[in-house]
Design a protein around this nucleic acid. Structure first.
Lengths: 338, 338
DNA sequence: GTGAAAGCGCTAACAT
DNA sequence: ATGTTAGCGCTTTCAC
């Protein structure tokens, strides 16, 4: 069933059918109805491939995700997909390993799929202008900003929270509750990723409050997973007496991993160790004690990313940067020290 | 940069370039090299859209997911995507609401995207042959089998666990631990979904062990989410004294929702109420008490689904049904009654 | 308002 | 082994 068949069946030319298909105004009401009926009857669906070919572009937007297993991303992906579909585009997603090159992946997809644009989720490196040059379509980094990096903000778009400030805020909450010996569970302190940004916020909060930093209190994991956090915390606790009263983790799942390690070694949260995190995934609201965390506006982040991308694709604007606020969800994982 | 340009630049015809592109044998080594060099130099990437158009099909496999927010599905999706990409195909995913018609969605995608095949994840209804007729490409239902439905097994493929048997096994574990008053937290008892299958397993386990069923002990939720489970359990506990010693839930996340409700009403797990579930998501291994659950082989389920689909697409086999075993993960959520 | 016809970039007969 | 050419199904001038 092609456009030709529909033309024949409704007694008009293919051009007229095409016009109807694309809601062009220059078709008589009569023809329009006739064609519409035939289309309906035959439950005809135009061949997207042919359309894309003649328009020399697709209706496809690429999504490159690093670390899909993080529940935080799942919700963002959902929002992104919904928004893309609503706008009449198609999403193709590619997940990549945590050590893979997302720019390279995006570039490959761009050519193969004739992408209109790309959303990067969970990106991490401090991209250089040269590396970005392989990308010829607009793209937006979701949940990552290069704010503390070296990249000219004209070269990319982003939607994120103010990672450093939010981490600062989280640690400050612990300090306000009387904590001074505050450990940080991070995935890395220097990889240019979100982890580093949040780690910097941690350091700044300490220093602004006159608390000396202690390298012993920085716990690095091998990755962002719950298991990575669990192992790192196990290690920490097994090798040394616990000498901190609070823990700041850069992600909810990492807090959950750490909490199990604490529990298994007889440390109670929040009695022996207060915990605060950043993310605000659904699950962490159901564990015991309920996790105190700064919730990222996941839905909004996904939507906004697509909004910006579409604006660029459809030529309404250039690169933009949006920073969204988090919202503190008070759980029961923080103890007030007196 | 099109195939014509490459042809011109390398001094051969487009057919020769096409042959090189598709690794056909009937090209002289010399031409092949020449063309390859030009392709390399120009970093030319063939237009997939045009290829798809002439081949009247794409390289795309559709994935229709209902309920992506369930972490259980996230891992399956990851496995599916990985496998599809490895095989050189492209995946396009569409999420649908829990009350949407996945067959309809699959049919639309099939036409629009000229899909080669479809994977349905989280499907639910007891499809009728008529409804399936709108699908003209092979498809496989992942984590759903119509075993207890009315559908001829020749008409579809599936990869699943033996839902009824596994539920039976879970409830039997509770019974073996001395429990007789066993509640069931399900999303529905009659919608033809996994929930119903697992509910039937629950009933059978009771009856085989001479335990009378009690409608009061069946708790229905409004959906599969953690929040749905929490609300349903809250309701149950608030309206009546708790008169059961154990709870069987059809999913890990639902167990987590229920456990919070129990906790908030002063009921302890497993002291006051033992809990067992089915799924085995990562997170439930980190909560307290660690959830006892039957783990589904997520990775294998995803891989197997794609294997079967590709076999059908590439004409190696017809519809098949694969049933995978679960694995009991003993947590600390079950108390032995004496 | 409508139709004829020229491609979009590629593959696959069919010739040579 | 290589080239020529007719489409794949659609959109879009350009005539009428």
């Amino acid at each position: 069933m092609t456009i030709k068949d529909i033309a024949r069946l409704s007694g008009v030319s293919v051009s007229t059918v095409s016009r109807v298909l694309n809601n062009r105004p220059d078709v008589s009401e009569e023809s329009r109805q006739r064609v519409r009926n035939v289309i309906e009857n035959e439950s005809y669906i135009p061949n997207n491939t042919a359309r894309d070919l003649v328009k020399t572009k697709s209706d496809t937007i690429g999504l490159v995700v690093r670390g899909i297993s993080n529940p935080f991303y799942t919700d963002v992906i959902t929002a992104i997909e919904k928004k893309i579909e609503q706008a009449g585009y198609t999403m193709v997603m590619r997940q990549i390993a945590s050590d893979a090159d997302e720019i390279q992946c995006g570039a490959e997809m761009e050519r193969e799929k004739r992408l209109l644009g790309i959303v990067f989720l969970g990106g991490c490196q401090d991209y250089t202008p040269e590396r970005l040059r392989v990308l010829n379509v607009p793209f937006v980094c979701c949940s990552y900003s290069n704010k503390y990096g070296t990249l000219d903000s004209e070269l990319y778009s982003s939607v994120s929270i103010e990672d450093q400030d939010e981490a600062y805020r989280a640690v400050d909450i612990l300090i306000k509750n009387g904590h001074k010996r505050i450990a940080a569970l991070v995935s890395s302190t220097y990889d240019g990723s979100i982890s580093q940004l949040r780690y910097q916020g941690y350091l700044k909060a300490l220093s602004d409050n006159g608390i000396e930093r202690d390298a012993e209190l920085v716990i690095e994991t091998d990755g962002f997973s719950i298991a990575d956090a669990y192992r790192a915390m196990e290690n920490k606790l097994d090798n040394k007496d616990m000498d901190f009263t609070a823990l700041f983790t850069i992600a909810d799942v990492m807090a959950m991993g750490a909490m199990r390690a604490l529990r298994e070694r007889g440390k109670r949260v929040p009695e022996d160790c207060s915990v605060i995190a950043i993310d605000g995934i659904a699950v962490s609201e159901y564990i015991h004690p309920m996790l105190s965390t700064l919730c990222q506006p996941v839905e909004e982040m996904g939507q906004k990313s697509v909004d910006i991308l579409l604006d660029m694709i459809e030529g309404r604007s250039g690169n933009r940067h949006v920073v969204l606020p988090t919202c503190f969800r008070e759980g029961a994982s923080i103890r007030k020290l007196n």
